[in-house]
Amino acid sequence: MAESIEPIIISVNGTERRLAVERSRSLLSVLRIELGLTGTKYGCGAGQCGACTALLEGRPVRACVTPVSHADGRAVLTIEGLAEEETLHPVQEAFLEAQAFQCGYCTPGMTMEAVALIWQKPRPSELEIREAMSGHLCRCGTYARIIKAIHLAADKMQR
C-alpha cells in the first residue's frame, strides 16, 4: 500500500500543477477531488460511458481508467479550460445552438470528444461522428442532436 509519493507535474488547462498524490490514482479522481475540476464526470469508472473524457496532449482519454501518472509532465485539457474567459469554444456554441443535452451530465465528456474529433478530422461524416462518439452514452437520448452539433461545430471551425 505504501506508494512513493513524488510530486506529479501536470499542466491542467494551461496552469502547471504539482500534485503529491498516489501515482496509481485515477486522473478523474485527481481532477475532481484534488483540483476541484468537477466538470469532468463519473459515470461508470470502467471506460464504458465517456462521461469522464478529458484531453491528454490533445487526445481524448477516459480519465476514470487513466492513472494520474500517465499525465505526468503532460498537458491535460478539461471542459473548464475550453472557453476563453466568456468566449465559448465553437463546439460549446454548437452544442448550445443544437440544444444537444437534456440533463447535461454527459455533455462535458461529449464536448471534449467532439473537440478532439474535429481537431483530427475537420469535416467528419455522420458515420465518422457515430464511430468517434460511440464510446459515449447519453441516457437522455440526445444522440441525434449531438451529431447535429458536431456538424455545426465543424462548420464554425472551418470559418
Binding site: 466538470g39 478539461t78 475550453l82 455533455t107 462535458p108
Partner: peptide, 12 residues
Amino acid sequence: DGRSYVTGAAKY
C-alpha cells in the same frame, strides 16, 4: 441551464 452544461459549471 444550457450554458452551465456546456461549460461544466453545472453542479450535480
